[in-house]
Write a protein that binds this DNA or RNA. Structure first.
Length: 436
RNA sequence: GCCGUCCUAGCUCAGCUGGUGGAGCACUCGGCUGUUAACCGAGCGGUCGCCGGUUCGAAUCCGGCGGACGGCGCCA
């Protein structure tokens, strides 16, 4: 084997290895042969490059191997990097050694694919350029969330995944056998975060969340990652500002770290950049209803939640995410308190993403009135006993506090312009799918 | 929970008012020294989702069941 240094394909395409002999370790992505020349496109996880294999430039048996190796065979290929306009990407590797580590069996995924088939072969499909790009963006998003909160004085705080309580409504809980009794998978970290703020002040967390909603839409997962924050002494105005700052920071980080991935995914970086530099507006639920009824000619009655249709119609008037505050109190969860200035509404907000990606954040100030919360819980058939510990938080030095949760996959789907949220997570769990 | 679409080769699909199951891709073999998910020729490949019914005869018509996908509601 000729002398060479192992490199990543991305280094070659950046122009740093031109005319040098290098080795790449990767997998065959495409292959075409033409008698005494084989064009093999190789991927290594960082990018793809064409390797040109000519008979005579390497051992004959290696040439035959290059000719017969199927897609996804693992290889170590050595050769000279040459700038060549005929090669996709502008650079190719002129091969001097072609070493097959494993000859792959026939790869089941070919050019014709249906969503169902790709979901069945998800463990193989995650190798695709598209999902590879999504995962890189997702990694940036997750990293940005940690950085944002840590840089702003928040402490990462973990809550149990097995929980005795509901947070967002009993009908959407996953029940789990727990020794001789039962418990539930976490719907939210919030109730525990509310306990934590009395110790730490400002906390955040990111982790899996489980909701057994019978939803079969491109915006729902049964298992998704939620990034939540909770802060003592914080009220609604400041809370919405933190949310806007967080989302803007996430976009800036993706723009900085993933320009190639955004291109692969067909997202317009300029549009995102403009969005990151434009203030996100805040409107009230009342204003949203007026806008829909007066400008969009709809007939929405006060008191109804904004549904998908209303949200999408509303977003036609905005190019950035929008914060909507003060939803009707009655349709909100037990822990959202009435607004003293407008008691029929709650001190809560949603952030709605543009282009039909829907709610990406939901949050609120937290109720401090034990009697009110008990009443609301009883209305939904909840057992008050399970919440005594939660009410204790209002008995020992209660303070105003607030928090919100970001749907990580919804943010990733929006930034990556995905058709479905399922592609924002490696192995999606939905109503009808829990394998592979 | 409600509504809609779909299920035929490994994959994507065609298959008319019922009459011996097809194409493209993939794969195998042969050809080709610059291909861009190459091209040319040949070959391999089927429990037509499952069960039942009608019929001389069902991929096709009827009934039931199962599975998948999407929309609504609900949510992040």
């Amino acid at each position: 084997m000729p002398k060479s240094t192992p490199v990543q394909i991305t280094e070659i395409l950046d122009g740093g290895k031109t005319d040098q002999v290098v080795s790449i370790k990767g997998w065959i992505y495409r292959t075409r042969s033409s008698g005494n020349i084989v064009f093999t496109v190789i991927r290594d996880g960082t990018n793809i490059i064409q390797a040109t294999v000519k008979r005579g430039n390497l051992k004959d048996d290696e040439f035959e191997d290059a000719k017969k190796a199927l897609i996804e065979s693992s290889v170590i290929v050595t050769g000279v990097v040459v700038e060549d306009k005929r090669a996709p990407g502008g650079y190719e590797l002129r091969v001097e050694s072609f070493h097959v580590i494993q000859f792959a069996e026939v790869f089941p995924i070919t050019e014709d694919q249906s969503p169902e088939f790709l979901m069945d072969k998800r463990h193989l499909w995650i190798r695709s350029q598209k999902l590879n790009a999504v995962f890189k963006v997702r990694s940036t998003v997750v990293g940005a969330i940690h950085t944002f909160f840590r840089d702003n004085g928040y402490i990462e705080f973990d809550a149990p995944v097995l929980q005795p309580n509901q947070c967002e409504g009993g009908s959407t809980l996953f029940e789990v056998k727990y020794y001789d009794t039962k418990t539930f998978l976490s719907q939210s970290w919030q109730l525990y975060a509310e306990a934590a703020v009395f110790s730490l002040g400002k906390v955040y967390n990111m982790g899996p969340t489980f909701r057994a909603e019978r939803s079969k839409t491109s915006r729902h997962l049964s298992e998704f990652w939620m990034a939540e924050m909770e802060a003592a002494w914080m009220e609604l105005d400041e809370l919405t500002q933190v949310a806007k700052d967080e989302i803007r920071f996430i976009i800036q980080q993706v723009l900085e770290k993933n320009p190639r991935e955004l291109t692969v995914l067909g997202q317009d970086s300029e549009k995102l950049k403009k969005m990151a530099n434009t203030p996100f507006p805040t409107i009230t639920y009342d204003e949203a209803i007026s806008l829909l009824n007066e400008k969009a000619g709809m007939n929405i009655q006060w008191g109804k939640d904004l549904r998908t249709l209303e949200e999408n119609t509303l977003m036609q008037y905005f190019e950035t995410p929008v914060v909507v505050t003060n939803y009707p109190l009655e349709i909100m969860a037990f822990y959202k308190p009435p607004d003293p200035l407008n008691p029929k509404t709650a001190l809560c907000f949603d952030m709605i993403a543009p282009e039909g990606y829907g709610e990406i954040i939901g949050g609120s100030q937290r109720g401090l009135d034990i009697d009110y919360m008990k009443k609301r819980l009883q209305e939904t058939g909840e057992k008050i006993e399970n919440y005594q510990w939660y009410f204790d938080l209002r008995r020992y030095g209660s303070v105003p506090h607030s928090g919100y949760g970001v749907g990580v996959e919804r943010v990733v789907a929006w930034i990556c312009r995905l058709d479905t949220i399922k592609d924002a997570i490696a192995f999606p769990r939905t109503m009808n799918r829990y394998s592979p």
